[in-house]
Simulated scan of single mutants.
Amino acid sequence: MWQEIITIEGPYDFDRVIERHALDPLNVVDLQHRTIKIPIVINHSRYVVEVTGIGTVEKPAFKVSGRNEKHKADQLKRISEILQWQIPLKPIHQHFQKTDLSGIFQEHYGTPLVLDFDPFSCLMKCIIHQQLNMAFAHTLTERFVKTFGTNIDDVWFYPNAETLANVTVEELRELQFSTRKAEYIIGLGKAVIDGTLNIEILARQTDDEIYRQLIKLRGIGPWTVQNFLLFGLGRANLFPTTDIGIQNALKKLYNLDRKPTVDEMERYKQMWEPYLSYAALYLWRSIE
């Protein structure tokens, strides 16, 4: 058993982070005790790390603990990446105070761009969630993970590529996957196994390089790539103009009688660079 106390520069609203994670039935969150258990994979080994908020928005502090001391430094590093502790939010907040999004950034002060727990599981989730309402997307993902994933200390890990590649379309159809979506998700596993897709290399590539590689895979379109770049890798300057939520948030922000055009969105976003991902995140939060 190991434990560390971590402090970072504020603002950082940990309660907003875990409230968001609590919406997913697969996540283990205790809002009262400000705790989340995070499944992480390092060198193909699985670890559960518990993070508890013990500070404030202005002075964030966390108690981080795990049962397995092997790769402890790597576990801490990965937790920091997932929770984006290495990204100071103050200069980002100050940047947006000079823009049309100043009110939204005041309302959601200290909200970080938190990553999914694992890039490969992020891609799986993006494919599963395509063209589904959020409630059923969570239900379908929960069925999938609890059928083919691994449970450690009551925390669920998504299936690895080897497991996924050996799942059949019929097995996924029984969970209410469409045939096409079942083929897509199995194909993702096979792409990793046969070397077509290397998840670890993706993290070191540019956005354009990642786009060109992922778009070749069946079932992965621009929306999926953008979501992966945002929530799988935490790229800071992405703005998904085709996202309906973003369009609705801008319609509300500017009191439009219809959704904004692509040209209008391109014009709006110029003042938000180089933090377009944070503009997108806060716009989504503004209509939730």
Rank of each mutant, 00 (worst) to 15 (best):
F136V: 07
E171C: 05
I210K: 06
T196V: 06
T141D: 05
E58S: 14
L175E: 02
E50K: 15
K269V: 06
L197A: 07
L31I: 14
T206Q: 05
N227A: 07
Q205R: 14
D100M: 11
H44Y: 13
K63R: 15
I215Q: 03
Q32D: 14
F96A: 08
E288W: 02
V57P: 12
I54A: 03
L253F: 01
D207C: 10
I201A: 12
P39S: 08
R218T: 00
L101K: 07
W85K: 02
A73E: 15
E266F: 04
H44E: 15
V29H: 06
F228Y: 15
E142M: 13
T196L: 09
A249E: 02
I87T: 15
N166G: 06
L253W: 01
L253N: 03
V169R: 05
T242N: 13
L140G: 11
G187C: 02
R267P: 00
L76I: 14
A182F: 07
H21S: 12
L230Q: 08
E69Y: 06
G55P: 13
Y47I: 00
I220R: 10
S121V: 00
R46H: 15
N198R: 06
R20N: 12
I5W: 00
G189E: 07
Y109G: 08
K72D: 00
V17R: 09
L175F: 02
E69I: 13
Y211E: 09
C122H: 04
F96K: 08
I128S: 01
A279P: 09
R34A: 12
Q213D: 07
T168Y: 05
R285H: 13
D207H: 03
I199P: 09
D118W: 01
A61Y: 03
T139I: 13
I82E: 00
K98A: 14
P240I: 01
M271C: 11
W284P: 11
H21K: 15
L253S: 01
I104A: 10
C122W: 00
T179V: 14
A280D: 10
R218A: 13
Y254I: 00
N198L: 02
E9T: 13
Q75A: 01
P60G: 11
V29D: 07
W85C: 02
Y12W: 10
L113P: 07
Y12R: 09
T111V: 10
